[in-house]
């Protein structure tokens, strides 16, 4: 069930920082689940993808061979949860030879300085 916004009704800025590749560890999936749950609280949510976190968004993931759930399509559900601020760090993409067109969901690609600036604006930063 949806929960009503906090009793105070104050909207805070939450940023979830995703730094891990999918599947090798549980961080990426757990982080995504926390984001989906937190969407019920009507806060100002953004997601930042940096370092290996950018690998979470790569198109064409096929997990049948390793017998775990492919959760990459779930990033496309975020829009329906009114989570539309997805920031991807350009330097992290480039270090991995990836481009914006190879990502499964529309994002804003921005330089490290801009990521830092937006991180500084937050009330709460939660890293996975």
């Amino acid at each position: 069930m949806d929960l009503d916004e906090g009793a105070s009704g104050v909207v805070k800025k939450f940023m979830y920082v995703n730094r891990k590749a999918p599947y090798g560890t549980i961080y990426a999936l757990e982080g995504l689940e926390v984001v989906l749950i937190s969407a019920a609280f009507d806060q100002d949510v953004s997601l930042a993808f940096l370092d290996d976190g950018v690998y979470q968004l790569v198109k064409g993931q096929q997990t049948r061979g390793i017998e775990v759930k492919n959760f990459s399509p779930t990033y496309r559900a975020l829009e329906g949860y009114d989570i539309e601020k997805l920031y991807v760090e350009r330097e992290s993409l480039e270090a991995r030879g990836l481009t914006e067109g190879e990502l499964i969901v529309p994002v804003e690609v921005m330089g490290r300085d801009e990521i830092v600036r937006r991180m500084e604006e937050q009330d709460v930063v939660i890293a996975f």
Partner: peptide
């Protein structure tokens, strides 16, 4: 390991000379 490459959407990006195995 091919299944791990496929899971991560990386199977078409393998460096020439690296062999994939199941």
């Amino acid at each position: 390991l091919a299944p791990d490459l496929e899971a991560r959407g990386m199977k078409d990006r393998v460096i020439e000379g690296v062999k994939t195995v199941d």
